[in-house]
């Protein structure tokens, strides 16, 4: 692994925009359609952004699974139905609508989620307000995973961190790239402004665990 972070793109405008905005933290833009021509093991971490092309993800699933199984650090954002194509680890995703997608228009409004204590290192880098806009379903939290963002009353998990053999998976149902890349919803920009510096520090061994 000679490079830090690879960013997978389906060629959508929002994803192309995100790569340009956070390029200083990223080592390569990897085109999903031709991902089979890339040696993913060159990268310490691979990011699959929200709203990637579902058919292409299924077509390239073997390679992505092999990367995770061989010790890679995979970060996947929904909606991508990772439960349908990740098979080296079980992901239990279920449908769950955001209770009120316009919660931010109401005085005192909040999205029904919280950051469990002790805070995951990513949650120490990104405040709860910058993780909340809406979400695409939720996960049943694996027994050996660390939650980063949970639904109220632990009804489900919106983001978790899990060791998979020598590999590592961060799974998320919040979708920052599509909104930041479309210049809508400032919380998603604040999330990515925290996320990429955190991830870069994490993979280059400078992370605070």
């Amino acid at each position: 692994m000679t490079k830090d972070i690879g960013f997978v793109t389906s060629g959508d405008g929002a994803q192309l925009q995100c790569y340009r905005d956070y390029q200083s933290y990223l080592d390569a833009e990897l085109y999903l359609r031709t991902l089979d021509r890339v040696d993913l093991t060159d990268f310490k971490a691979i990011v699959i952004p929200d709203f990637s092309h579902p058919d292409l993800l299924r077509r390239q699933a073997r390679q992505i699974n092999d990367y995770l199984a061989s010790g890679g650090f995979l970060i996947v954002f929904e909606p991508n139905r990772m439960d349908e194509w990740l098979d080296v680890v079980e992901v239990q995703w279920f449908s769950r609508e955001t209770e009120d997608w316009k919660w931010w228009m109401k005085p005192g409004g909040r999205m029904e989620a919280y950051q469990p204590e002790p805070l995951h290192p990513m949650a120490r880098a990104i405040p709860q307000a910058d993780m909340c806009w809406h979400f695409f379903g939720a996960f049943r939290l694996p027994a050996d995973a660390t939650p980063i963002l949970n639904l109220d009353n632990d009804e489900g998990c919106l983001m978790y961190d899990q060791r998979v053999g020598t590999g590592r998976l961060i799974a998320s149902t919040i979708d920052p790239h599509t909104h930041h890349g479309r210049r809508f919803m400032p919380a998603t920009t604040r999330f990515l402004n925290g996320f990429y510096p955190w991830l870069k520090a994490e993979v280059s061994g400078r992370g605070a665990n």
């Binding site: 793109t9 060629g11 959508d12 405008g13 929002a14 085109y31 359609r33 709203f51 092309h53």
Partner: peptide, 8 residues
């Protein structure tokens, strides 16, 4: 609004 600009 979501189309593959690299392919096009």
């Amino acid at each position: 609004g979501m189309h593959d600009q690299l392919f096009l």
